[in-house]
């Protein structure tokens, strides 16, 4: 028996394909607790979490632990740029929990009336210089990034990691002339990883996640541009209690150890 859809709900195994498909469609439009399930099982519920792209690996881990602890619960994630996620929510995307990569973005969500209660800081991240493993331009310090011979890629100032990069530059009193200003950290990392660029500024968690192909160099000035990750439940959450439980899981000891393993620091 194969499962035709990547749905982790138990009903998908026995339900006829059409019902499964209809429920899947319904799930797309509601994005919240389903009602199917056999009587002896706890009711099937779905929790939708929108989170910054840099949280992907940690949150997927925390999510599967959460599902283990809460039988019948399915956690669905939407990962992306923080501002984009907030824009989606403002446009009516249904979700229960939001976690952003910096506080100003969360503030926007609060201002739009999307957030229920107070956001909780749960992790922090800082920038690191990322270079290809063989470091062809011989980058040793932040000052080397200002060398006109080095091809440096940064985030565009309009996105959070770009704003952080500008702050680091200012703290160090240097002027980096990037060959490209990318849309997201992932794009910066990709350009360095492929060897197109000699160096970039990305989050330490991105370097940790990229494996052997790249190396990270610590930057003392990065402390000044530490970004704090807040998490909050949303006003449109279908199951506020379950959303609170997820937030607790992230801020709790187990969640924190997963995040620290990925390179995040405490808030």
């Amino acid at each position: 028996m194969t499962r035709p859809y990547a749905v982790r709900a138990p009903f998908a195994v026995r339900a006829p394909v059409t019902v499964a498909a209809l429920t899947l469609l319904a799930g797309c439009s509601q994005g919240s607790a389903g009602t199917t399930g056999t009587p002896q099982d706890p009711p099937a519920r779905t929790l939708t979490v929108l989170a910054a792209a840099s949280l992907q690996r940690s949150f997927e881990r925390i999510g599967s632990d959460f599902e283990g602890d809460h039988p019948g619960v399915t956690v669905r994630f939407g990962f992306g740029g923080s501002s984009g996620l907030v824009a989606q929510l403002a446009d009516g995307a249904p979700a229960d929990v939001l976690a952003t990569a910096n506080e100003p973005t969360m503030d926007t969500a609060v201002a739009e009336g999307l957030v229920a209660g107070e956001p909780t800081p749960f992790a922090s991240n800082r920038l690191q210089i990322v270079v290809p493993k063989d470091n062809p331009a011989g980058i040793r310090s932040l000052g080397d990034l200002a060398d006109p011979g080095a091809k440096v890629v940064l985030c565009a100032p309009a996105v959070p990691c770009g704003a952080a990069s500008v702050a680091v530059e200012q703290a160090a009193g240097i002027d980096i002339r990037p060959v490209s200003e990318e849309q997201s950290v992932t794009d910066v990392l990709g350009k360095v990883r492929s060897g197109e660029a000699d160096a970039g500024l990305v989050y330490v968690t991105d370097v940790a996640g990229a494996g052997d192909e790249v190396a990270g160099l610590d930057v003392a000035e990065a402390a000044s541009a530490r970004s704090t990750y807040p998490i909050a439940t949303l006003t449109r959450a279908d199951d506020a209690a379950l959303a609170e439980e997820f937030v607790a899981a992230v801020t709790g000891a187990e969640g924190q150890s997963v995040l620290q393993a990925a390179g995040f620091a405490a808030p």
């Binding site: 824009a87 309009a158 200003e181 990318e182 849309q183």
Partner: peptide, 21 residues
């Protein structure tokens, strides 16, 4: 090509970037 004002950031790239800010 990347994205840099005046060199590689064409109108669609600029639009996509502005969407963030």
């Amino acid at each position: 090509a990347g994205s840099l004002q005046g060199t590689t950031r064409t109108l669609p790239l600029e639009i996509y970037l502005q969407r963030e800010g």
